[in-house]
Amino acid sequence: MYITITAQKLGKTYAQSAAEFVEYLEKENQGLEWEEMEHFFNQYSDEISAENVIKEIDDNTAKLKKVEPKFYSITVNPSKYELRKLQNSSEDLKRYTRAIMKDYASSFNRDINGKPITVDDIKYFAKIEHQRTFKGTDRQVRENQPFATKILKLKKEIWKIENDELTGNIKQLKSEIAKLEASAPHQSRGLGRKRIVQGMQKEGSQSHIHIIVSRKDASNSVSLSPGSKYRSSEVMLNGKMVKRGFDRDSFFTKAEKTFDATFGYKRNYAESYQSKKDFIKNPKLYFSVLLGLPASEKAIAFKILGKSGVPIASIPTNKVQVALKTIRYLKRGVEVAIKSGSIGI
């Protein structure tokens, strides 16, 4: 599971309307009939129109300044292992969304009219997506880039030959391009293998959740920021002591436990939120726990890490070998693996 919470920025300023973000989230619905679409939903309603989402979010910004976020985006990305536990990806992910939004509400260190915040105080709209495309920052695209550069150069040569700006053998150049295409390290696995490029659709189950959360509560009177640096504190405001802050650590922990309880998922240490915290705070402890797992769980952990590009052969085989040099060597690969298989900090 990988969860992110971000304020929606346009350059140096925050988006003043949810319109562009909502339009982006509607991309998978283009060309589909109403009954075939994935619609926006919230805690109690389904099939909410994009227009209504924009209006509800944009009208819920009382007293917010231009330099303050109007809404936040929460993205929930289950791993392929977690997705396998779902019977019906759309309905199951809707159910999970509604459950973790209760976790989200309970992670605020705030009261509204003397009562703890509940999900009914949160104004949000969510949408399930089933597709993902490769970005320029993805490892597969980056490692294919040297081949892409050479291919582009050869294609330019062919264009110049065809336009009498250069002399050369077009057939030979096309043959070189074909060899480069086939030699690129990352290829699609479907019919007609192709070099992975930016914008290409990713294969396999890619279902994930996008949630738009208003900065203001449902009454449009209280500001609720999940970006607050004040995890759990009190401050004097208008002569009153008020609580403030959002505990992200608590939210991420609850979200993971909610998934496991909801779908009966047996989580391996290598894909847990706790493992990511261990790795960041104490890498030596991380490897020690990893190596101390029962044989069957350790085999699964190594498989998870291996699928994510970690050089398994270089992982120490016993606790004595957990040395600083080894940790530094593996750090980058393990960071990728942890990011792809656990909740982000």
Rank of each mutant, 00 (worst) to 15 (best):
Y72D: 00
V67K: 09
R267N: 14
M241V: 11
V76R: 00
L83S: 10
R132Y: 00
D249G: 15
I161D: 02
F279E: 05
L324A: 08
V67A: 02
M1E: 07
F134W: 09
K307T: 13
K276H: 10
K123L: 15
E68C: 05
E36W: 07
I5M: 09
I161R: 08
L93T: 08
R189M: 12
P69M: 01
R98C: 12
Y96C: 11
R231P: 00
A178C: 04
I112Q: 08
S314M: 13
A178L: 10
D249T: 12
T13L: 06
I122A: 10
K9A: 13
K216R: 15
N77R: 10
K216W: 01
T6V: 10
Q8K: 14
S340Y: 05
D278S: 04
I300T: 15
I280P: 01
P283F: 03
H186M: 14
Q206E: 12
R267G: 10
E38D: 07
V334R: 02
D138C: 09
A255S: 15
T6M: 06
L330A: 06
I48G: 05
H208G: 09
I338T: 06
E165F: 05
E297N: 15
K319D: 09
Q140G: 01
I57Q: 05
K257M: 13
P283K: 08
T137E: 09
Q274F: 05
E47L: 11
A182H: 09
I100S: 05
